[in-house]
Design a protein around this nucleic acid. Structure first.
Length: 500
RNA sequence: GUCCCCUUCGUCUAGUGGCCUAGGACUCUGGGUUUUCAUCCCAGCAACAGGGGUUCGAGUCCCCUAGGGGACGCCA
């Protein structure tokens, strides 16, 4: 049997380090076994998926040097590689499941389900579907369907017994069927859920080894049920440890920059990032910590993957990157630095900002320092402003960060419109509103135009600098954040501007 | 709460019953080289979660406890 692996990112945000990590292991394993590696886009969440995110994810992987043999951009014999383009396949399979009795139609409303869940939680039970629609008569189903009632397709799950499966890293794992919920397979919008789509696609695309994050371990029983219902073969399962924040929780942007683009923007070399990722949960047989993708490929062995979850350490990443940078010969160093500086036209955009403020070229460097490098380290006193209390400044920084995350296009006019609307909603003078933002972005109260600056340094770095400013001002407690979120959401969306 | 997974220096890891007086890397500390800084070199601090077994022998195998994490969505 030929080895085929895949990653299946969902295009719902910035390219995530976790995607790169899982992608790296899948790529390298496929190569070590002479197999193929597939990228499939899981865009079954209509509300959150975007083509921009898909493009960004593929571009980030490419930048890292992770290539794929089949995918939405390069095609392949098992297409389409975008789930939204495979809807008919899922519908056919859903019908099969209903016909064979492996699944059933469910008319329960989200409201009722929420109610059931609440009751179960307060009764200290595991929240799961209560089986209300399990035994509807065919006549009733037909009638309600004909009446245009919304419905979903749910998976039938055994009432008792044990589900047993094998993980290549952890051995046999047993889960009581009692613990498994009657998962929704087809949503009422006609789109499949992850469980349905991934299972079918993995089979149809001939995936031999499912190498993915540990968060999927508990969904294996559902997948097994589906595989058996279709009379297919289960792929081999490899559940990778989850990369974690310094506090031990699953890696999230709350505590760390998790976007691959962020590391690209601050000047991390792709080969250094890939190397560092390769040392998480895996090690070279000879204990070398610096190794190339090719070296990892030829030495790769699944058995050397650890099952305990590593902490992502940005300090060590920087150390790795430093070693790579210093190993460059001087010509390559210049070339790489120049390429980084002029990425996405930054130099030209900076020049446009700085030219009219220049009498002699010697004036330039100090104006653009925070655009071509990190900004100055801030002290709490830097934010002192008689017209603006610290709390107010924190609020502005938090609100702005939140709305930036959802901003569709990262361009000066959009950023400006977003801030202006929010400023008006807060009934503040724009000048005051901008105070903490200038400090956060440039490190000083006066700098080159703010929104152009943000556009130049990019969304991820902007967000990171805002977060850092918030920390500098003493941070925001979980409790405070919660209440601020409410206020923020009540004020309405600030990131839906359509600026020409 | 329920189920599942995990547990070696602060962090990433080596270790698959005797080679372990537990090794390497990052961080930190001290020293050397360097006009400064950085690099580089040398040295140092620092760990088998706890308790029971199995065995001549346990970081390595088994059990219990504790701790951590994940899942429990018409998100993936």
């Amino acid at each position: 049997m030929s080895v085929r692996t895949r990653i299946a990112p969902s295009p719902t945000g910035a390219p995530h380090l976790g995607t790169a990590y899982v992608g790296l292991i899948n790529r390298v394993f496929a190569d070590a076994r002479g197999g193929a590696f597939v990228v499939r886009i899981e865009d079954t969440d209509q509300a959150r998926s975007s083509r921009a995110s898909e493009v960004a994810i593929l571009e980030a992987l490419r930048w890292l040097g992770i290539s794929w043999d089949e995918g939405p951009d390069v095609g392949g014999p098992h297409g389409a590689y975008r789930q939204s383009e495979r809807l008919d396949i899922y519908h056919r399979h859903a019908d099969d499941l209903i016909n064979t009795g492996a699944a059933f139609r469910c008319f329960c409303t989200p409201e009722r389900l929420a109610e059931v869940r609440r009751a179960q939680i307060s009764a200290r039970e595991t929240p799961r579907y209560d089986g209300r629609c399990l035994d509807l008569s065919q006549d009733e189903i037909d009638a309600r369907l004909a009446a245009g009632e919304k419905s979903v397709v749910r998976l039938k799950v055994p009432e008792e017994g044990i589900c047993s499966f094998e993980d290549q890293l952890r051995g046999e794992i047993q889960v009581p069927w009692m613990q498994v919920d009657m998962q929704v397979l087809m949503k009422s919008d006609g789109f499949p859920t992850y469980h349905m789509a991934a299972c079918i696609d993995d089979h149809l695309m001939g995936i031999s080894h499912l190498i993915r994050g540990e968060e999927w371990l508990s969904s294996v029983p559902k997948q097994q049920l589906l595989v058996n219902a279709f009379d297919w073969q289960m792929p081999r399962l490899v559940h990778l440890p989850l990369i974690r924040n310094p506090d031990g929780s699953k890696l999230s942007k709350r505590r760390n920059p998790t976007s691959i683009d962020y590391y690209r923007r601050i000047g991390i070399l792709p080969e250094a990032l890939l190397n560092y990722l390769g040392t998480l949960g895996w090690s070279m047989p000879d204990e070398r910590d610096i190794f190339s993708l090719d070296e990892m490929r030829s030495a790769f062995d699944l058995a050397r993957i650890k099952t305990s979850a590593p902490v992502f350490d940005p300090v060590k990443l920087r150390n790795f990157n430093g070693r790579y940078v210093r190993a460059l010969d001087s010509e390559a160093f210049v070339a790489r630095y120049a390429a980084w500086l002029s990425e996405s036209d930054a130099l030209a955009r900076i020049a446009a900002l700085v030219q009219e403020r220049t009498e002699a070229f010697e004036d330039i460097a100090r104006q653009v320092d925070y655009l071509v490098g990190s900004r100055a380290t801030l002290n709490p006193e830097d934010f002192d402003n008689p017209r603006l209390e610290t709390d107010r400044q924190l609020e502005i920084l938090a609100f702005v960060s939140w709305s930036f995350e959802g901003l569709e296009r990262w361009q000066r006019d959009e950023i400006h419109a977003c801030c202006k609307t929010m400023c008006d909603a807060l009934e503040m003078k724009f000048r005051d509103f901008l105070w903490p933002l200038f400090l956060a972005i440039s490190g000083r109260p006066v700098s080159l135009p703010l929104f152009d600056s943000m556009a130049v340094i990019g969304r991820d770095v902007t967000l990171m600098r805002c977060r850092d400013a918030i920390e500098c001002l003493g941070g925001i407690s979980k409790k405070r954040e919660k209440s601020l979120r409410k206020v923020f959401e009540a004020m309405g969306p600030f990131n839906r501007h359509s600026v020409q």
